[in-house]
């Protein structure tokens, strides 16, 4: 019998510890590094949203950049053209944009395709979004939208000033920790387990009376909404939305995070995103080398650690426990493979 309460406490603890580590980071790092850490925090949830599809419902998306960019551009447009709209409204609109894009494209793609065809369709849709952005004057065409202001959240009695990069960084890490834990809760809810059943055997799950396509679409929309939320949160931090964030290279990022960290573990993409950020920073003065380093590392991980870095570490720990004769279960309850 799996102790779900204990599992939840353990994962809540992981989210809180992660939040605390990110929160103390500005005490030891300069503002440039803090900015990168903010982007890593956004990337963690972006990676988790992609893995909700891949390891959750078993759909391979090659077009996650379209959601991220959808959210980012919606937020940018709202901030620049509707400055009176509350910040939360912008975030909501941003997230909804991703949800709507996912609903439209998911509805078409899931009706017509599965497996690799689905992946290619998502890539095509994502390119379509990229092209639409580069051709739309309202969205700044190839040049993007710049000078996006950071908000002051008015709560009536008090206001929270997020105009400084540091204040906004704290907002990002809190928002991302909350979303990450909410995502874990969803994946471990009855609905989350149902979509995992679909990944394992869609035919059998359909036979049990489940509308497989609706659940796949639900997961796709949820994943798109979260990815778009990440984009919407990122934009006031970077203060720029440019078409590059809708480019296919951005779609490959959550895939890289997941493969590096380990697709079979909920926090795998988080480990991958942190590692990816660290490599990017370490190779910042060695132009062109960051891509080579990431490529080599990925090759190494795929060949030597098929379960990703997290999978490798946890399996080592389990093996060590077995050797010492400790019969204790791995306390990180999520270590049980989701695959």
């Amino acid at each position: 019998m799996i102790d779900y309460r204990r599992r939840m406490r353990a994962n809540l603890a992981i989210a809180v510890i992660g939040l605390v580590l990110f929160a103390v980071f500005p005490l030891v790092a300069n503002s440039g590094l803090v900015f990168l850490a903010g982007l890593v925090a956004v990337n963690i949830v972006f990676g988790l949203s992609w893995n909700l599809l891949f390891s959750g419902v078993g759909l391979l998306s090659f077009g996650h950049a379209m959601f991220f960019a959808g959210g980012a551009y919606a937020m940018a447009v709202v901030s620049l053209r509707l400055p009176d709209l509350p910040f939360a409204g912008g975030l909501l609109l941003g997230a909804m944009t991703g949800g709507i894009i996912a609903l439209v494209f998911g509805y078409i793609a899931l009706r017509r395709a599965s497996g690799v065809y689905f992946a290619v369709l998502t890539l095509a849709f994502s390119e379509l979004v990229h092209i639409v952005i580069t051709k739309t004057t309202f969205l700044g065409r190839n040049d993007g939208l710049v000078g996006i202001p950071r908000p002051v959240i008015n709560l009536g009695v008090a206001s929270i000033d997020l105009t400084s990069a540091l204040a906004y960084y704290y907002f990002i890490i809190v928002a991302m920790a909350v979303v990450a834990f909410a995502l874990w809760s969803f994946q471990n809810s009855p609905a989350g387990r149902l979509i995992q059943a679909i990944r394992q055997d869609p035919v059998r799950t359909a036979f049990l009376g489940t509308d497989v396509r609706s659940w796949q679409l639900t997961a796709f929309v949820l994943s798109g909404t979260i990815a778009a939320f990440c984009g919407a949160v990122m934009v006031p931090f970077a203060q720029i939305a440019s078409p590059e964030i809708a480019y296919w290279t951005v779609s490959t990022e959550p895939i890289l995070f997941t493969l590096l960290g380990g697709a079979g573990h909920f926090w795998g993409p988080a480990v991958g995103a942190i590692l990816f950020g660290a490599i990017d920073y370490a190779t910042r003065a060695l132009y062109g080398l960051s891509e080579i380093t990431v490529g080599m590392l990925l090759l190494g991980v795929v060949l030597l650690m098929p379960g990703g870095l997290l999978g490798f570490l946890l399996s080592r720990r389990t093996a060590a426990r077995r050797l010492t004769g400790s019969g204790k279960r791995v306390p990180m309850a999520n270590a049980e493979k989701a695959t």
Binding site: I240, A285, Y287
Partner: peptide, 20 residues
């Protein structure tokens, strides 16, 4: 030196990191 990759996003990250 920092690589901007001719991309406003990467350029803005590099510029901030340098100022930091």
């Amino acid at each position: 030196f920092r690589d901007s990759k001719a991309n406003p996003n990467d350029a803005s990250v590099a510029a901030r990191e340098l100022i930091g």
